[in-house]
């Protein structure tokens, strides 16, 4: 099961009174606002797993309504970086984070930050699709409902809108009550995307969202990312460099916990500044 949603579920049961009504304004703002601006700013970020340092002093600025790809060989720290953006690493006991991450100007590691609201604003999609063993409708309605949306009409509208945005509506509109697990792998992944966007996040994190899918489903996810970037800020980890080249506006190359180069994707794949980047993208190592 989606662990971020799990934690949302646990924590919201305690904090239900604190959760605000589903923020429709937020969703509307996400749709209307196409202005590129700095959304995420990592400053001197270091992450430790116990004694092991996984990220070394990483600083980068991610622009809004853009797709940013994180690439690098296994163990380079790209997934660790992604997971710091909605504090998924909090779930691992031995993790220790230094430095700051500002999202819309606020340090998300500040003790006052409510992790549940943070994750509402920063959704996540994982490598393996992980729908709840519930109906298609319930999968999408789940998030808004636990954030306080009870009105059936509003929920119906949200479910349709989210499924449409995830490019799944036409395929499932006649069987919304069917079990989500009856969908194909690619459809399940798009359902997970619909579920993530149903709570109106500003940022979507994707950890290898297409690596378990066949080429056709992968192409659909990539097309979808192209659509979603109009409304969301997307950060995607991918092992598939061609995919990074196809879907992203900016690419960050990580190596051994360091951010080696962060630049426009076109620049990274035609004329990278760093030799290490050139060696990696041309497959000379990694």
């Amino acid at each position: 099961m989606d662990s971020s949603t799990l934690s949302i579920e646990k924590e919201t049961s305690k904090k239900m009174s604190l959760t605000t009504k589903f923020d429709k304004q937020n969703m509307k703002r996400a749709v209307d606002n196409k202005v590129t601006k700095t959304v995420i700013e990592a400053k001197n970020l270091s992450v430790f797993y116990g004694m092991n340092q996984a990220l070394f002093d990483v600083s980068m600025t991610i622009q809004g309504k853009q797709v940013t790809a994180l690439i690098g060989p296994s163990g380079c720290g790209k997934s660790t970086f992604l997971r710091t953006l909605n504090r998924m690493n909090d779930l691992i006991r031995s993790v220790h984070v230094e430095g700051t991450i500002l999202i819309d100007g606020q340090n998300i590691y500040d003790s006052k930050v409510d992790v549940v609201s943070l994750r509402k604003g920063v959704g996540m999609v994982f490598q393996k699709s992980n729908p709840f063993p519930k109906s298609i409708y319930e999968n999408v309605a789940f998030g808004p409902r636990i954030h306080g949306e009870r009105n059936r009409g509003n929920l119906d509208g949200l479910v349709e809108q989210s499924l449409r945005q995830a490019g799944l509506w036409e395929e499932v509109k006649d069987r919304l009550t069917a079990n989500a697990l009856s969908l194909s792998g690619g459809q399940q992944q798009r359902l997970c995307i619909a579920r993530a966007i149903a709570v109106g996040p500003e940022i979507l994190l994707m950890d290898e969202p297409a690596s378990a899918l066949d080429p056709k489903s992968t192409a659909r996810i990539e097309d979808l990312i192209g659509e979603l970037r109009k409304d969301f800020t997307i950060v995607i980890v991918t092992h598939n460099m061609q995919q990074a080249a196809r879907v992203s506006d900016h690419t960050a190359f990580f190596y051994e916990g360091n951010l080696i180069e962060f630049n426009r994707t076109q620049h990274i794949f035609t004329n990278p500044t760093e030799e290490k980047t050139e060696d990696y993208v041309t497959g000379r190592f990694g």
């Binding site: 990274i268 794949f269 980047t277 993208v281 041309t282």
Partner: peptide, 9 residues
């Protein structure tokens, strides 16, 4: 091969 960077250039 869909080459990139120096190989593409």
């Amino acid at each position: 091969h869909q080459p990139v960077a120096i190989d593409l250039r």
